[in-house]
Design a protein around this nucleic acid. Structure first.
Lengths: 210, 210
DNA sequence: TCATAAATACCGACCGGTTGGTATGTTGAC
DNA sequence: GTCAACATACCAACCGGTCGGTATTTATGA
């Protein structure tokens, strides 16, 4: 008679720590977030923390995986995924990224981009984790780009992988500007430019007739 | 018979602190960089540090200004600035941004983007400074974009300011990917996409004849 | 011109608080 | 009784910042 009823009480301490870490790191950054901060937010003590994670660094790596898994679910279940045409799916993806730029900044920014910026030179493990999960997400996007390219721009000189990574760069940059300006309007603007770029890349107008 | 001969001895302690801070923060991030780190790198002690800056936060704001001033000189004296056509200057700017993506990552990444990512929520002063200087640089770029637009795309629906900020977002995102992948090749790729986008925006092909 | 006062630049020991991490319980399920 | 899951107490190192003191430069004024 339990397991699902206990509401918020015990949804797994490990998950609570990861959620708290995600939130805190996206708000304050990795270095500025202390283990105590995370424990406090999760309603646990250090004993629990170091029972589940060998070190703060290991938590960061696990949080990157956690974030990536959450994102995977979010995008996999989004409506645009059901579209039949790959170009529609690609533009649907971009529109979806624009649509979720809502609410407080820490809730739509990317944990991976935030962490790798601080840790790339000091923690190889964190850098590698962020690279891996950013790359995995880009690879998903690249699938649709590759399919759309085969259909609508088979002779274009750019690669699907390169364009996919570019979309991620634009988003990461949009997050930074949103943080600087303390508002998400600029981020939406950036996504709109990204959409126009993709439209232009796939516009038959720009391809030599043969 | 001195003043210029004393080599490295005394090029102003304040400047040495700012230079050391720039280097350290671009490598490790703001929070992970301690005041002692900066002092050690500058060959000074804490006494000197807190003589020149009231707090670590004040140093960060000063470092942002210092970085911005350095960048201003760099871009103002670049060769592309002498081009007569505004579109040539704009594309020259982008090519220049691609050309300086060289050497170790901390040497071509942006202090402002790095700091604002960590401090936007905790230090209004730092956030404001980063926003100001990013905006100022974008405004410079926007000048050429506006002139180019007047010449080549007067009816386009996008604004020069929006495109200018987008260029900065792409660069910031490119830096993040470079950090994740631990190499600058991806950043060059992003700049190439940005260039293509600008070319497409200004390509007469894409504008309705009237 | 030169003593001297006053401001500036810098040193380095020190402070209270916080850091990541450890060592040692306590508790409850199987 | 054993073991995972946590709590509690604690530690050395480090954090940003202060403070009293000392060189060095600059301003002053007779």
């Amino acid at each position: 008679m339990d397991g699902a009823i206990t509401a918020k009480a015990k949804p797994d301490a490990r998950k609570r720590l990861l959620d708290a870490a995600m939130q805190a790191i996206r708000t304050q950054g990795y270095s500025a977030t202390s283990v105590d901060d995370i424990c406090r937010a999760a309603g646990l003590t250090k004993g629990a923390f170091f029972h589940h994670f060998k070190s703060k660094e290991e938590l960061a790596v696990a949080a990157a995986a956690h974030f990536s898994a959450m994102a995977e679910v979010l995008f996999a279940s989004a409506a645009y995924r059901k579209l039949g045409d790959p170009l529609d799916r690609l533009l649907g993806y971009v529109d979806f990224r624009g649509a979720i730029l809502d609410g407080p900044i820490p809730e739509f920014t990317c944990l991976l981009g935030t962490m790798v910026q601080e840790a790339y030179a000091t923690s190889p493990a964190i850098r590698r984790a962020c690279d891996t999960y950013i790359g995995a997400h880009a690879a998903e996007v690249a699938k649709d780009i590759a399919a759309a390219k085969a259909l609508y721009a088979p002779r274009a000189e750019w690669s699907a992988e390169s364009v996919a990574l570019y979309t991620q760069a634009v988003l990461q940059g949009a997050f930074i500007l949103a943080k600087a300006k303390n508002g998400n309007a600029i981020a939406r603007d950036c996504v709109a430019h990204l959409r126009r770029y993709l439209e232009l890349l796939f516009d038959r107008h720009n391809q030599e007739e043969e």
